[in-house]
């Protein structure tokens, strides 16, 4: 129960900060930061979001349980995002040859012919028996 009410002044200062945040995020978009455009936009959005959550939604004055619920939502979204992106990022890493698990060369039978990719013009000729 949000017993303590934020004063009117706080509401209007938060509103002003939100408008400043809006102006900032639009301005930053026009500056070419290359890779850093996304983190900047996210940082401003998070700043505005924490303002709305803490003051407008009274989480600042709410019991500890509300804090846990809010952070649980954030953490679970982060889990989904992080582990999904982890797959897409690491798809192009090619695993190195595991040193110990060599395919056993079968003894007795004829060694595998060294098969070059079609790069060299000579088509791989079967060994003349």
């Amino acid at each position: 129960m949000s017993a303590a009410q934020a004063s009117l002044k706080t509401y209007f200062t938060v509103y002003a900060l939100l408008i400043v945040g809006l102006a900032a995020t639009v301005a930053v978009a026009f500056v070419h930061l290359g890779f850093w455009n996304l983190p900047a936009a996210l940082a401003i959005a998070f700043f505005k979001a924490t303002l709305v959550v803490l003051i407008f939604m009274h989480v600042k004055y709410s019991p500890r349980l509300t804090w846990i619920v809010v952070s649980a939502g954030l953490i679970w979204f982060a889990i989904m995002l992080a582990l999904t992106i982890a797959d897409y990022v690491s798809r192009s890493w090619i695993p190195e040859r595991p040193y110990s698990v060599q395919p056993t060369e079968p003894q007795g039978l004829e060694p595998p012919r060294s098969f070059q990719t079609p790069g060299n013009k000579a088509a791989p000729t079967a060994k003349a028996q």
Binding site: A29, F30, A41
Partner: peptide
Amino acid sequence: FPMLYLIDRSD
């Protein structure tokens, strides 16, 4: 808003 509208407006 930033995710959709403001990806890279520099050019």
